[in-house]
Amino acid sequence: MKATDQYFDGIADKFVRNIYGTTKGKLRHLLLLESIQPFLDTPAQRIIEIGGGTGIMARELAVQGHHVTLTDASRDILNLAADLLHDFPQVDITHCPLQQIQQLDSYDLIVCHAVLEWLAEPFDALQFIAEKMRPGSRLSLSFFNRDAALFTNAVYGNFDYIARGLKVKNQVRLNPTNALRPVDVINFVEQQNMTVLAKSGIRCFHDYMKNKPESDDIFEQLLTLERQYRAQEPFCWMGKYFHLMLEKN
């Protein structure tokens, strides 16, 4: 059976609880927001967020004064985004799969976080974005780290799963289907005439903890540690997600 892109219609509420109602989701959002902050150095940038989901990142960018176009392939997800963003007229919401987005060359910054791993052909999608960008524009890209996924499953003794190439027997809709190796993505984007401006791991420690933080104090200590080491080798390569800031040459 041919693989297809994975959307979240019918499970939007479950998706929100699983991602943003947990310490892993909170950490991912905070660290990604901080990772792109140094590149929001000019006011009122034109930003498009591909696969922006419920609009949490779009809202943060709008608060800073940027004009944001939020796209997603799931209507159910965008209904939640519309509720969150109803007080932000500078955010446009568009129901559109990645491959149908038009005029990417009109944006200063493209945000594509945690999207590629849900696609049947992630490198085709990445090539599509790179080809449509204008020189000098930037891409904030994050994706599920295959190396970190393998390491995590080895720690937990899931050897059969590793032997199957990290493919489950029965696919769960909230499990990414196409984790990517950071070195492969870096090599690919450099071939697409893009320069890596910054790289960092997202959740380099959290997902390996036996006991996840249950108090605000422990969470803040972990956040401090994640901030300190996310851009340092070898720790950055072990982030459950990997973030790249890229510029089109």
Rank of each mutant, 00 (worst) to 15 (best):
I50W: 03
L33A: 14
T54I: 11
E34F: 11
T23A: 13
R59S: 10
I48T: 03
E60T: 06
I36S: 01
H29W: 11
R28K: 12
D41I: 11
I56C: 04
I36C: 00
R17L: 09
L27T: 14
I56D: 06
Q45W: 11
P43G: 05
M57Q: 07
R17C: 06
L33C: 09
D41M: 08
L61W: 04
P43T: 11
N18S: 12
D41Q: 13
I50F: 04
G52K: 01
R59A: 06
L61K: 07
I36A: 01
Q45D: 06
L30I: 13
R28E: 10
L31V: 10
Y20P: 00
T22M: 02
Q37K: 15
P43K: 06
R28L: 12
T22N: 02
L32K: 10
I56G: 02
I56H: 04
G52M: 06
E34T: 10
E60V: 00
K24I: 11
L33R: 14
R28A: 13
K24A: 13
T54Y: 02
I19F: 09
P43I: 09
I48F: 14
H29A: 12
F39P: 03
K24N: 11
T54C: 02
L30F: 07
L27I: 15
E49R: 02
I36P: 00
I36F: 00
P43F: 05
E60R: 12
A58E: 00
L27V: 14
Q45T: 09
L30G: 05
G55V: 04
L30R: 13
Q45A: 13
S35I: 08
P43D: 11
L31W: 09
H29Y: 14
R28I: 14
I56W: 02
I36M: 02
G52Q: 03
T54A: 03
I50G: 01
R17E: 12
R59E: 07
K26F: 05
P38Y: 08
P38R: 04
Q37H: 15
T22V: 03
F39S: 00
Y20T: 01
L30S: 12
G55I: 00
P38T: 05
R59W: 07
G21F: 03
Y20E: 04
A58G: 00
G21Y: 04
G53F: 00
Q37W: 10
R46Y: 13
T22F: 03
E34K: 15
I56F: 12
R59K: 15
G25I: 06
D41A: 11
L40Q: 01
I50C: 01
Q45R: 11
G25E: 06
L32G: 08
L33M: 14
G55S: 01
G51F: 04
L31E: 08
L61R: 06
Y20G: 08
K26A: 08
G52W: 06
G53V: 00
Q37A: 15
E34C: 09
P43Y: 10
R59C: 02
R28H: 14
Q45V: 05
G55Q: 00
H29P: 06
K24Q: 15
I56R: 11
